[in-house]
């Protein structure tokens, strides 16, 4: 099939989702009223926009994740050839991991992995 299958499946996905939604759009008539489109907030009118700026402690995790994610990317080619290369690969990855583990320990010590 090759990479064309990606396009085929993408189309299938669009057809699947689009088909389902469009049936409802075409055939189901909904009642209209003023409150229907409002945001649901437990039955109380919502106050202000919900797209407010948002103090959140997640971004530190995203930061650290990004860096480890890159590390992960390097692991894949390494893992594929580790059996052929042998002990050398283990040593290389030991150094690699050691340095990163230092990073993790540092982050832990600094409290970056504590939820703020």
């Amino acid at each position: 099939m090759g990479s064309a299958s990606l396009i085929v499946l993408m189309c299938a996905g669009i057809a699947f989702a689009g088909g389902g939604i469009s049936i409802a759009l075409l055939f189901v008539k909904g009642s209209k009223n003023a409150q229907k489109g409002e945001a649901y907030e437990c039955g109380i009118p919502t106050k202000g926009t919900s797209w407010a700026q948002f103090q959140i402690g997640y971004y530190l995790f995203a930061l650290i994740f990004l860096l480890f994610d890159v590390e992960l990317v390097f692991m894949y080619p390494w893992a594929v050839v580790v059996k052929q290369v042998g002990m050398m690969a283990l040593v290389e990855i030991l150094i690699f991991f050691f340095i990163l583990f230092m990073g993790l320990l540092y982050a832990h010590k600094k409290g970056a992995l504590k939820w703020m």
């Binding site: 993408m10 996905g13 699947f16 049936i23 409802a24 759009l25 189901v28 008539k29 909904g30 409002e38």
Partner: peptide
């Protein structure tokens, strides 16, 4: 057969796009 409802204060384009993304990714 249930009404497909888009809230009036939603970002309508992205609101309707999101289910597509999720399904396409799963595909």
């Amino acid at each position: 057969m249930k009404e497909a409802l888009t809230p009036s204060n939603a970002d309508k384009f992205l609101f309707n796009l999101a289910p597509f993304i999720v399904i396409i990714v799963a595909m």
